[in-house]
Lab assay of single mutants.
Amino acid sequence: MIINNLKLIREKKKISQSELAALLEVSRQTINGIEKNKYNASLQLALKIAYYLNTPLEDIFQWQ
């Protein structure tokens, strides 16, 4: 199981879903879906999320 901390980290950094989506060149709905565990981010997208949030990938998506 993967624990998804994207919403928590994004909100801590005061970045909206729309802002993050624009940086990543995806839709806001994609970010929303990832945060609600409706969609799994591809490895490429997960790495981009970590880069733009300046946060280690394993802090955003944790295996349990």
Rank of each mutant, 00 (worst) to 15 (best):
T30G: 00
I3H: 09
N32Q: 15
E19D: 11
S42R: 04
N37H: 10
Q44F: 09
Q29H: 14
L20E: 00
L47D: 05
D59C: 12
T55R: 04
T30D: 05
Q62N: 07
I34K: 00
A46P: 00
L43D: 04
Y39C: 15
W63S: 07
E11S: 07
N5F: 07
P56D: 08
S16L: 05
N40L: 11
L45F: 09
Y39H: 11
Q64F: 05
I31L: 13
N32I: 15
K38G: 07
I49M: 06
K48C: 07
R10P: 02
L45V: 06
I3Y: 10
D59E: 14
K7D: 03
K48D: 06
N5Y: 06
Q64S: 14
Y39F: 15
L23N: 08
L23S: 10
E25G: 15
N4R: 02
E25P: 04
N54W: 05
L57I: 12
K13H: 10
L23P: 00
Q29F: 08
T55I: 05
Q29G: 12
T55M: 06
E25L: 11
K14C: 13
I49G: 00
L53G: 01
A22C: 13
A41I: 15
K48Q: 08
I3R: 11
E11I: 11
Q62K: 10
I34F: 02
P56N: 08
I2F: 12
L47W: 09
I60P: 01
L6Y: 01
Q29M: 09
R10G: 02
S42H: 07
A41E: 00
Q17C: 04
Y52W: 10
I9M: 07
M1V: 11
Y51I: 09
Q64Y: 09
L6S: 00
N54Q: 14
P56L: 04
Q17W: 03
Q62Y: 08
N37L: 07
A46S: 08
R28F: 10
Y51W: 10
I49D: 00
S16P: 05
K7G: 07
I31Q: 00
Y39L: 15
S18M: 12
D59T: 08
A46E: 02
E25W: 05
A50G: 04
I15C: 07
Y51K: 10
I49Q: 00
T55A: 07
I49N: 00
L53K: 02
A41L: 15
L47G: 07
K36S: 15
I15Y: 07
K7T: 07
